[in-house]
């Protein structure tokens, strides 16, 4: 076995041991031992809750994130390209951007009540600003030589946009998708704790409230971590397309 498997495995084993030892030494009857967490996961699977909640969370993230991409990328590219539009809208974006999606929860509930639309709205908000802002910056920082070289060939505005501006910005856009998908996954959990009655966030808060089932709380946390990792690995694959590899340093 090579080091890239052996070393992380050793760390995970050590964490497992320390965790188990700490619970045993402290004689806690609330905080779960690691094996109890795995039993908790098994119990959730048996009751059919795990798959249901994972699907519910993933569904909300997919919809909210997709909406954010569909709106954020084109709006960002247009604002980056048309200077007057940028001047007009940038202050508004800069004011809305620092507001945590969590702060929107009361308004989301007011508008959408306790159904799927509330967390979807919050996920959309969490993703749309980083995507828009990065897309704007990508267009504004495009290498002038690409635009000049393209103008040589008598392209129309639309062709210039499609054949040069968009592909030149794509590596940065993909990076922003990766970052904002990570944020969306953070936000869905928070949103589900308050605005709905399903999903991994709801699982955690419900397990705590209904009987202090901390084994299920930690089981939910573990699932959130694992699925977040899988999402990141999946979206990283976008960076491996030949058309965008040039935009990332030599690590590819």
């Amino acid at each position: 076995m090579n080091k890239s498997v052996l070393l992380p495995a050793a760390v995970l084993l050590a964490v497992y041991g320390l965790w188990d030892g700490a619970v045993l030494l402290s004689h806690s009857d609330i905080f779960p031992r690691p094996y109890q967490v795995f039993l908790g996961i098994a119990e959730l699977m048996q009751r059919g809750l795990l798959l249901k909640y994972v699907v519910a969370s993933l569904f909300r993230v997919s919809i909210g994130f997709t909406l954010a991409v569909l709106i954020g990328v084109p709006v960002g590219l247009l604002l980056g390209w048309f200077r007057p539009a940028f001047l007009a809208f940038n202050p508004l974006i800069q004011i809305l951007r620092p507001i945590s999606p969590i702060a929107w929860i009361p308004i989301a509930i007011l508008w959408f009540h306790v159904d799927d639309r509330a967390p979807i709205f919050l996920i959309f908000l969490s993703s749309v600003f980083p995507i828009t802002v990065t897309s704007i910056a990508a267009v504004q920082n495009i290498q002038p030589v690409y635009v000049r070289a393209a103008e040589n060939f008598g392209l129309t505005r639309l062709e210039l946009f499609r054949r040069v501006i968009f592909p030149a910005c794509l590596p940065q856009i993909i990076t922003s998708l990766r970052i904002s998908l990570g944020i969306a996954w953070l936000v869905v959990v928070a949103a589900e704790m308050i605005a709905v009655n399903s999903g991994l966030g709801y699982l955690i808060i419900d397990a705590r409230n209904a009987g202090k089932r901390y084994d299920l709380v930690v089981a939910g946390m573990l699932m959130i971590g694992l699925i977040g990792l899988i999402l990141d690995l999946l979206i990283r694959r976008l960076e491996r397309f030949e058309e965008v590899k040039w935009g990332y340093s030599d690590r590819n």
């Binding site: 030589v145 690409y146 592909p167 030149a168």
Partner: peptide
């Protein structure tokens, strides 16, 4: 400075 498009 290179005007060749790196995505093509």
């Amino acid at each position: 400075d290179n005007g060749v498009f790196p995505w093509l």
